[in-house]
């Protein structure tokens, strides 16, 4: 074969066409995009397998009356019963309300705390690196460990918080944090805020550092005071970053499971049962997988709607 003699030849002597021995020359400009698709393929296949396929399975399940789902069993008849039951159940609307409350409180507090800490550690001061580390620390702590720490802090008999409340004279007797619905909700919200704000802080800090110094100089020359500079320059120029960050935090609150499940398990009296806890309870507590899938699908739709609402035009490139 003629190709066998090619490696022995000096490079310059090779005919340019001979290099296409494998029939696919990806270096050719007209085929360069093939390489892109080729490199994307494994990831796309993986996502299709572990995200898209289960999504369709659960969509399909939500329209069937299924207890324990098994792929080897024949498909049950199509029914809207799961959704009918869902929209008429008080438990579902309660879970929606809890999720919504948590969403507003946790996202709002993460936003304020994250932005405030980012502004703080964006200043030049001694020990800034340490301060930045401490701001970002909760993000690095695994969720379950954070939950255990907070479960101890809010323990009713030997927890730090009760000691603090009694020492400060805010209460005369110990508060049973996990048996009172409002207190349990507060504990869940506080834990989620503690775990979630560093993400906003890190993103906001990155955004703050990309704001040109001259924007502030120009505003100073124009006579803007610190508050005016914050509202007219910092916030609007950070908006593309903050918009996306808020969406991510919202989605995290929507789907977070471990914090609530380990702290309260959704109780007491379902006061901390969010949609994701409810999905789990229905699927693996009561083994009503069809019904659980319906909850999951509704949660997904809500997530998509909330994201669309928040991303909107805000994320447009500014520069």
């Amino acid at each position: 074969m003629s190709t066998q003699s090619i490696p022995a030849q000096p490079l310059a002597a090779r005919a340019p066409g001979r290099r296409r021995r494998f029939g696919l020359d990806l270096a050719r400009p007209s085929r360069r995009h093939w390489l892109g698709y080729l490199l994307l393929a494994p990831a796309v296949l993986l996502i299709a397998l572990i995200i898209v396929y289960p999504l369709f399975i659960s969509l399909d399940l939500s329209f069937q009356n299924v207890g324990i789902a098994r792929l080897d069993q024949p498909r049950r008849p199509f029914t809207l019963a799961n959704y009918e039951r869902l929209f008429t159940s008080a438990e579902f609307w309660m879970a929606c309300w809890v999720t919504f409350k948590l969403l507003v409180i946790v996202t709002g507090a993460c936003f304020v705390l994250g932005l405030a800490t980012a502004l703080l550690v964006n200043n030049r001061f001694r020990g800034r690196s340490i301060a930045r580390l401490f701001v970002a620390l909760p993000w690095a702590v695994p969720e379950v460990i954070a939950v255990i720490i907070f479960a101890w802090i809010f323990d009713s008999s030997f927890g730090l918080m009760n000691w603090l409340f009694i020492t400060l004279g805010l209460t005369s007797q110990t508060i049973n944090w996990f048996s009172d619905p409002d207190a349990a909700f507060a504990v869940v919200a506080i834990t989620m805020i503690w775990k979630g704000y560093p993400f906003v802080s890190i993103m906001a800090l990155a955004g703050l550092q990309s704001i040109p110094e001259d924007f502030y100089n120009a505003a100073k020359v124009d006579g803007a005071n610190a508050w005016q500079r914050f509202t007219n320059i910092t916030i609007p120029t950070l908006m593309p970053v903050l918009g996306v960050t808020i969406v991510l935090v919202m989605l995290w609150v929507f789907r977070d499971f471990s914090i609530i499940y380990v702290l309260t398990g959704g109780g007491p009296l379902k006061a901390t049962q969010t949609l994701s806890i409810m999905t789990y309870e229905q699927a693996f507590g009561f083994f009503k997988m069809g019904y659980a899938s319906a909850v999951g699908i509704v949660t997904l739709v809500l997530c998509v709607l909330a994201s669309l609402l928040m991303v909107g035009r805000r994320a447009e490139a500014m520069y």
Partner: peptide, 21 residues
């Protein structure tokens, strides 16, 4: 005096135009 109280205007090298306005 603060920059805003000096009654001067400044033009910057990179213009410093606010992108959102």
């Amino acid at each position: 005096l603060a920059p805003g109280d000096r009654d001067i205007a400044m033009v910057f090298q990179n213009y410093a135009l606010y992108p959102h306005l």
